[in-house]
C-alpha cells in the first residue's frame, strides 16, 4: 500500500490581499512543491467583492486545491468538507498515475467500465482513511475578521475532530496574518491535536493589512523546516503525494 503523506495549506480569509507578493503566484509555488492550497472565504453580514472572489478562486486553482465561499455559520461543515475533498483529489491523482502505469497512457479511472471503477474506489477510500495528513491553517486576522474569529476557532476544533476519527495520523499547524511584529505569526506548531487553540485564540488581536502572499510563502518554509528536521532525526526517505494536473 502507498505510504505517502498529504500536505495542505488551508487559507481562511474574507477578502483581498493588499500587501506583498501575489498570493496566486505563491500558491503556484506551493503546488510546485507538492503542497495543495485550499481557500475558504467567510462572509457574515458583508459580501466578498468581485476582486476578492477572483483572488480566492485563483489561489485555489493555481494551488491545485478547492475553494468555497460560505456564511460564517456553515464554516465548520465547509472546513471539513473542503479538506476532505482536496485530500481525495490528491489521492485520486496518485491512483490515476498508478493506473496510467498499468493501463498505459491517458487512461484514468473514468476510462474504466463502471464495474471496475468500484474496486479502484475502494483503494481510494482505504487511502483516505489511512494516509498521513499535514494541514497548515492560515487565518486572516485583518480587522474585518474580528467577529468571525470565534466561529473560525470552532470550525478548526471541529476539523480536528473529523480528521482524528481517521486511523491515519494528522498534523496541524496554525498561522495568523498579519502577525504582531511580522507579516505572519505562528500560533501553534505542528501538533496532532487542535485543542490548545481554545486558549490562544481568545488573545488574538486583529490588524489592518492583509498580506496573503507573504503568509503563504512563510507557510511553505514551515513545511520545509519540518522536512529537514525529520531528515536529521531519521534517514528514511519520505515520499509525498503530489497532485497530478
Amino acid at each position: 500500500m502507498y505510504t505517502g503523506k498529504i500536505r495542505q495549506i488551508l487559507l481562511i480569509t474574507d477578502g483581498c490581499s493588499n500587501q506583498g507578493e501575489d498570493p496566486i503566484a505563491m500558491a503556484a509555488l506551493a503546488h510546485e512543491q507538492g503542497i495543495t492550497v485550499n481557500v475558504i472565504g467567510v462572509m457574515e453580514h458583508d459580501v466578498i467583492d468581485e476582486k476578492g472572489m477572483t483572488e480566492i478562486e485563483g489561489i485555489a486553482a493555481s494551488g491545485g486545491g478547492v475553494s468555497q465561499i460560505v456564511y460564517a455559520e456553515a464554516l465548520s461543515q465547509t472546513v471539513q468538507m473542503v479538506t476532505r475533498k482536496a485530500m481525495n483529489q490528491t489521492i485520486q491523482g496518485v491512483v490515476n498515475r498508478e493506473l496510467q502505469q498499468i493501463l498505459g497512457r491517458s487512461k484514468t479511472m473514468e476510462d474504466l467500465p463502471p464495474e471496475k471503477r468500484g474496486e479502484v474506489m475502494e483503494v481510494v477510500d482505504e487511502l483516505g482513511e489511512t494516509v498521513e495528513l499535514e494541514v497548515l491553517i492560515l487565518v486572516d486576522t485583518s480587522a474585518s475578521m474580528k467577529q468571525k474569529l470565534p466561529t473560525v476557532k470552532e470550525a478548526l476544533l471541529d476539523l480536528s475532530l473529523s480528521l482524528n476519527a481517521r486511523s491515519g495520523d494528522n498534523q496541524f499547524s496554525v498561522y495568523v496574518f498579519p502577525g504582531k511584529k511580522n507579516d505572519v505569526e505562528r500560533l501553534l506548531d505542528w501538533t496532532p491535536n487542535l485543542q490548545n487553540l481554545t486558549s490562544i485564540f481568545s488573545k488574538l488581536t486583529t490588524g489592518g493589512i492583509t498580506p496573503t502572499g507573504p503568509a503563504i510563502r512563510t507557510a511553505l518554509t514551515s513545511f520545509n523546516q519540518k522536512r529537514s528536521l525529520r531528515s536529521l532525526l531519521s534517514d528514511d526517505d519520505e515520499s509525498y503525494m503530489e497532485e497530478s494536473i
Binding site: S76, E129, D158, L161, S162, A165, R166
Partner: peptide, 21 residues
C-alpha cells in the same frame, strides 16, 4: 471503524461534544 464520510450537524454527536466521528 473508519471516519464518518458525511454528516449533518444536528444529528452528529461530534457537534454536540458527545463523541467521536
Amino acid at each position: 471503524g473508519r471516519a464518518i464520510k458525511e454528516f449533518t450537524e444536528f444529528y452528529d454527536r461530534g457537534y454536540w461534544g458527545l463523541g467521536s466521528r
